Amino acid sequence: MYVVSYFTDADEALHLAYSHDGERFATVNDGRPVLRGAVGTGRLRDPFIGTGPDGLFHLLATDGWTSPCIVHATSADLLTWSDQELIPVMAEVAGAHNAWAPEFFRDRHSGLYHLIWSSVVEPGTTAEGRDFEHNGQDHRIWHCTTEDFRTFSAPDVFFDPGHSVIDATVRELDSGGFLMAYKDERGSNDLATAHKDIHLTTFDTPGGPYASPRGPVTPSVVEGPSIFRRGDEWVIIFDHFLEGRYGAASSRNGVDWKPASLTLPPHMRHASVLETPPLASLPPQ
């Protein structure tokens, strides 16, 4: 089963859709949110769901445009959620302006879970007065580690290619290494711009070294990539956020990509795909 978590511009809350074939997705709760923000700014943007060390589903989400914290909650069935909490991932970093698009992945060699997110860090400045929604900023990918989602290591830079990048997402490869997609955040929010597209890299150890980037593997202007396995192929979905639609591409080797067709919910923004065994809370389509 595949579950897509997303928000919409009209409702910055957790929405879900699901599919049994990875091609046709049906909305949960008739397209209404299954969870609304209850801490911080009250926003749940860029939601990501993965399975934690306790066997529960763990939600991470962006707490608005300029919060140094990310939202965290847990669930056994994706419909009923624990009390939300704020994880202050960047609160102690001087000059940190935000913490966007949090996700996590597990390193099976160390057993650690790596939380990753995008941040601007400019000591001596603040986020006040900056138009984060419309103007690009100088982001890098940051991370911390945890064994239990209760205590976390100090944050550190995870990926810095020498220019602004956001929206990293990581999948473990059968070989034991990792595949990472991310957005080249250079350029402007204009369909004629250069950059603002998705690239790929691989690494064996979290934090690098990283292989030479490949791409772009998408058109421009897009963001919010998410990668999942469907049969013997990889599928990547991405948000054409200026055009109000979603795109997808597929690959059998992770190198050569071609356009793919999926039926996804309308108005979906910055979605993430969870692969999970069938759940009684989400009936057959």
Rank of each mutant, 00 (worst) to 15 (best):
S110K: 13
G215I: 04
H134E: 03
G64R: 00
P33H: 05
E133A: 14
D190W: 06
V28W: 01
E243L: 15
L44I: 14
V221D: 00
D11C: 01
R43W: 09
C144H: 08
N253K: 14
V39H: 01
A94P: 11
P102Y: 04
T276N: 09
D204F: 00
S67H: 04
V235Q: 08
R140C: 07
V235S: 03
V4Y: 10
G215C: 12
P213G: 06
S110M: 10
D77W: 09
L242R: 01
R245T: 09
Q137C: 09
E172V: 12
P278E: 15
E85W: 05
F48M: 15
L274D: 07
W234E: 05
S281Q: 14
S75Q: 02
T169W: 08
P33W: 00
P266G: 01
T169E: 10
G31Y: 03
Y246W: 02
S67M: 11
A61Q: 00
A248F: 08
S272D: 13
D256R: 03
L86D: 03
G129Q: 13
G162L: 11
N29H: 04
H163K: 12
V217P: 04
W65P: 05
R36E: 11
E23M: 01
A211Q: 14
S118F: 03
A168N: 06
P219K: 02
G207K: 09
G208A: 07
E275N: 10
A13I: 11
A101L: 08
E122F: 10
W100K: 00
G52M: 01
D11Y: 02
D9K: 08
T41C: 08
D197H: 07
G50D: 09
P265W: 05
G244A: 12
V121Q: 02
W81M: 06
V170I: 15
R269N: 08
G64M: 10
D160N: 10
P206I: 05
M90K: 03
A271S: 06
S226D: 03
T8V: 04
L264R: 04
T151M: 09
S19N: 06
P278A: 12
P216L: 03
M268N: 06
G64V: 02
A96S: 13
Y6V: 13
A91G: 12
P209E: 13
P225H: 00
G40C: 04
G207I: 07
H72S: 14
P155M: 11
W117V: 05
F203C: 13
